[in-house]
Design a protein around this nucleic acid. Structure first.
Lengths: 235, 235
DNA sequence: AAAATAATTTGATCTATATCAGGTTTTTTT
DNA sequence: AAAAAAACCTGATATAGATCAAATTATTTT
């Protein structure tokens, strides 16, 4: 029997997959109350912009419900940094002295609810509660690890590997199942993989023709996970 | 007179340009002593590997002297995440519960001295000193902002823009002068820009021919900074 | 249900940049 | 100083994936 050692275990490339966060766990009753008093839940419809790159970040955003993308805008095409699922912080990187503006934009894929937490309150708690600060550091690091993985994927892998990556990441981290109904357009997938929508189409078809996935309109089923992994690492 | 508003000020794409850090400033005498007792300075020669991706991170690395690159290894070509200059932390992202391994490799461009700080000691201080933790969070965020900028550069800009970026970043953040002697090979530059060394050569020549830079062997002088900026944003 | 709109597929072409191969210059070693 | 090795430059060619255009299929609106 072969003993396989996993080296370089690849971080997920589309989504930050930290466990759901009960951020209140590390706070005293007082602190919890303070945070509650300075938070507000806001509903967003599908496609709406929650945060705009460059604008003043007066709050930290926690995604209570929904699914959003976090992306960089620039003179060229947008760059999607990550997808964030419910019960995760979206915008911790703006908790940053001297530059209280959003580094990126955030918009919703589906109807969503976000908790907006006043940034000064949030900072104040970080400055006084080292346990909480440690947790935040851990989250920031998980985020960094994921961004690195995605950075590597988009700069070093070619089209087939990228598409394989995104299929696996959606399956594992968003839908939690080998078969799922994709509520993203080919264009969304193109944005996510950094390819053109035509290329995504073609590669999906190839995967289908070689029975790696089953594909019926928007329904995807992964048939050969191992081959997908191979394509991801070597393609 | 035109009033120019800078929007989307681009973060540096090659290097983390936080001010030099006196990380002891936020520590009590006791803590400073504790840290000192659990730190060690180590000398590295040019080209040596200071940290290896995937290996156990038993310490946090602070670069006291020198110049290093931080890069991801993978099945494809390496990806340089950043350059780190003296008096900066190199490996904060490994201060991360549950995954105490280096996310990346680090190697020196020139002879360097690193302070290796025991990771448990470091974590202990973070957990008990919220001011210090806040500082670390700020550093992590500065790092994140820089990685985003580089991510954007390498995935969205084409060759000319990338070369322009790297020239400007080296000038501003590493050498602090419009003319400098490059102690990096064309291959290093290729790695840094994600291009082939031949492409770097060609683009350097084009920039020279259109008097954007002066180029004599390894000596570079920026003649037309504005044009370089334009190329960076639109090229 | 029909019409209109949007998304997807497919094939043909184009293009930026890599790769390859050769010669030249610079740097290092002897 | 000569020889060897490394780095660099230049032109020719190859290629992955983008773009364009037109046809088909889904979805939304009327």
């Amino acid at each position: 029997m072969e003993f396989k050692t996993k080296h370089n275990p690849a971080p997920p490339t589309c989504v930050v997959s930290t466990p759901h966060i009960d951020y209140l766990e590390f706070l005293s009753e007082e602190e919890t109350e303070l945070l509650r008093a300075n938070s507000r839940d806001v509903k967003y419809k599908k496609g709406e912009v929650i945060a705009k790159q460059g604008s003043f970040a007066s709050h930290v955003i926690f995604l209570k419900e929904g699914l959003v993308k976090v992306y960089l805008e620039g003179d060229q095409k947008d760059l999607i940094l990550k997808i964030v699922t419910n019960n995760h912080f979206i915008s911790l990187s703006s908790v940053f002295d001297g530059n209280d503006s959003f580094l990126y934009s955030v918009s919703t894929y589906i109807d969503s609810v976000a908790t907006l937490i006043n940034i000064d309150t949030f900072k104040q708690i970080i400055r006084s509660n080292a346990k909480f600060a440690t947790q935040i550091i851990n989250l920031l690091n998980a985020n960094t690890a994921q961004i690195y993985g995605r950075f590597y994927c988009l700069t070093r892998k070619q089209s087939h590997g990228r598409v394989a990556d995104i299929i696996m990441c959606l399956s594992e981290n968003i839908f939690g199942s080998l078969s799922f109904k994709l509520n993203l357009t080919r264009n969304d997938l193109a944005d996510l993989t950094g390819l053109s929508s035509e290329s995504v189409t073609r590669i999906f078809k190839e995967f289908k023709d070689s029975s790696i996935i089953e594909l019926d309109n928007k329904n995807i089923k992964i048939l050969d996970y191992e081959r997908l992994t191979d394509i991801s690492t070597y393609g």
